[in-house]
Design a protein around this nucleic acid. Structure first.
Lengths: 228, 228
DNA sequence: GCTGCTTTGTGAACGTGTGCACGAGTGCCT
DNA sequence: AGGCACTCGTGCACACGTTCACAAAGCAGC
């Protein structure tokens, strides 16, 4: 119990996979499975079995040799490690196309991230209701963050407004940001930022497609730099 | 010219950063900047200058020592490497909340990924028009993929329908998939899949928030496994 | 209790990614 | 022409992540 503070740091790569395991385990639990092997979990998660075992070993030795892992207990442990023992309300900045879709996406609240509010800078959008959440003015952000104890903000604005949105979120007291705008946000070191950029993902796919196609054909007619 | 086929493989980590450099360079170019140093590019991209230089060196030696990189030329080279010399039409499967937002998100077409079509399995949604694109029935997928020469598919369905959507995309001839559903897709080895999972991103943020909060307090009242 | 089968947990080897540090090349100024 | 300031390109060392392989541990059947 005293060593609880000295909890080993979990590698980033592992933290990124825990949510996947958690989802699979929850599904399996719902289907009545109460014990699962690392091999099966790996198969369902599309990864290597050794990786699963190593990942889970960072949480502690919660498996039983010769048997596998008790699904319900593992779910509990992963949830605890990820801090999912309670809800984390989020506030969405930007009530455009994306903000609306996010607010309407039920999966948010279901998975422990209820939408505490959605704000926009455009007065015309304020007051409209999206999936039960009323759009409020961005000036109300500090109040929402404080009364609802929000620590996670979602930036769903156009690129040009993203930095301002982030600044406001930080000033309001948010400490983690999920950024959907195609911009590199400048924030204080202590703020955790994660980025989701659709264009980047598509361009990575494009790279592989182009490579698959041979790639060489595009070399025809290459312009040269100014110098000789 | 003969060595064009022997193009060095670019590391995944670098491929993932090239789109970021590309966006920044394009912006800088629009602002009239025509030469940029690795240091400045690194600053704007939120990365290390040495990393920028190493990344760009995989494309070839396109910089000038003592000066920096010619913005326009670098943009051209990155676009070429990423296969962005021509458009890549995409087809979206699922006309729900997310599918609609994606279709309406202008950034898609602008960046070289025009929406060639959006399909849904629900007859009730077929025929409606989203941002100029008419929703068609999923049975028309093969036809859309072939006539529009689509090689990238976007899965924007609920989790339960995602695998079926992926299967249909693959059968229709798509070779790259961008998956928004919280499911690990099973596809032939040759198909490139990238995943965007909002819940995973939020859970990673949750982990850091929980860790920030101390983490130990949640240990109170931990249930134990069945065994002694 | 012993044997055999299964599956975990982890040391060790390998591969990938990062960042420093510095040689090498370039432009500018005198 | 020579010196100086600047910046790229890259070898090298280190950190991080992945995978293998196997001992340790548990269960089942007899």
């Amino acid at each position: 119990m005293a060593s609880e503070r000295t909890r080993r740091r979990i590698p980033d790569a592992t933290v990124a996979r825990l949510p996947v395991y958690l989802r699979i385990l929850t599904e399996q639990g719902d289907e009545g499975v109460d014990s699962i092997s690392s091999e099966r979990l790996a198969e369902l998660g599309g990864v290597n079995a050794a990786k699963v075992r190593k990942d889970l070993s960072y949480l502690g030795s919660y498996g039983t040799r010769g048997v596998g892992y008790e699904v319900a207990y593992l779910v509990y442990q992963i949830r605890r490690e990820l801090g999912l023992t309670h809800d984390w309300p989020v506030v969405i900045v930007g009530a455009g196309n994306l903000g609306q879709a996010l607010a309407g996406y039920g999966g948010f609240g279901e998975r422990g991230f209820p939408v505490a509010g959605i704000v926009d800078i455009d007065e015309a959008k304020v007051g409209s209701v999206l999936s039960g959440v009323r759009v409020r003015h961005i000036d109300e952000l500090p109040q929402i963050v404080q009364t609802k104890r929000v620590s996670i903000g979602v930036v769903a604005t156009p690129a040009g407004a993203a930095q301002d949105a982030a600044d406001r979120l930080v000033r309001a007291g948010v400490t983690s940001i999920l950024n959907f705008a195609p911009v590199v946000l400048a924030v204080p070191r202590a703020i955790e930022v994660r980025k989701v950029d659709l264009a980047v993902e598509l361009q990575i796919l494009s790279y592989h497609e182009q490579r698959r196609a041979g790639g060489a054909i595009h070399a025809v007619g290459t312009p040269r730099p100014a110098s000789a």
